[in-house]
Amino acid sequence: MSDRPMIEIESVSKWYESFRVLSDCTTAVGRGEVVVVCGPSGSGKSTLIKCVNGLEPYQEGRILVEGVEVGAKGTNLPELRAGIGMVFQHFELYPHLSVLENITLAQRQVLKRSKAEADERGRALLARVGLAEKERQMPADLSGGQQQRVAIARALALDPKAMLFDEPTSALDPEMIHEVLAVMSELAAEGMTMMVVTHEMGFARRVANRVVFMDEGRIVEDVETEAFFTAPESERGRDFLSKILNH
């Protein structure tokens, strides 16, 4: 399985009732690769990324994570998800648990680590995202940017093989976006496999290996980063770029 991409998405389609939200999407994310998924709102990019770890079911096609088919009946989804970290737009920290407990819960429940082991790993990750002194605080006491960094630490605590980011900076005030992107850039530099839904085109250009551009549930472009920014193939891609860059 060495040459095989970490995440393979093959002709995936999805419907909500009769409304088609994903149409025949095909792409892949290689080991150590960073892929940015962008497109106008409602283009299906968040839905696509949530299909990768089975949070959203799909009706047609296949998604393979390290060769394991996500949508297959016998797939152990909790086990598969534990191997993929995910970061959400609205952080989704557990409001009743302290910062450190947020990071240790799945370590202890899913990976069955001891409390000491989980705490140690949690503290190391908090230090890494620059929040070592916040471990006893409750999520509501942190700023948005800090909460999102905790959420990243929470995902990393399970030693994931890949990370999914679903608009991680969209809910943040402008001055906090940078601190989150810095952590993400660092992760990418360390060779983490990442699939990132974002509107941050500066980040995409600096960090991404490839850009997947979606519109109306379809993957319209799937190209090298530079190619997308210098010469988008599609009319819609050009349109999107000009809107978002002149913004």
Binding site: K50, N53, L55, L77, P78, E79, R81, A82, G83, I84, G85, M86, F88, H90, E92, Y94, P95, H96, L105, A106, Q109, V110, R154, A155, L158, L164
Partner: peptide
């Protein structure tokens, strides 16, 4: 529901999501 989704994403089973997230909150 998004909070439950986040808990599922970290590999918790439905029972664990209920026991550790939904019920205590």
């Amino acid at each position: 529901p998004q909070l439950k989704q986040a808990a599922r994403a970290s590999g918790l089973t439905e029972t664990q999501v209920f026991r550790h997230i939904v019920l205590p909150i």
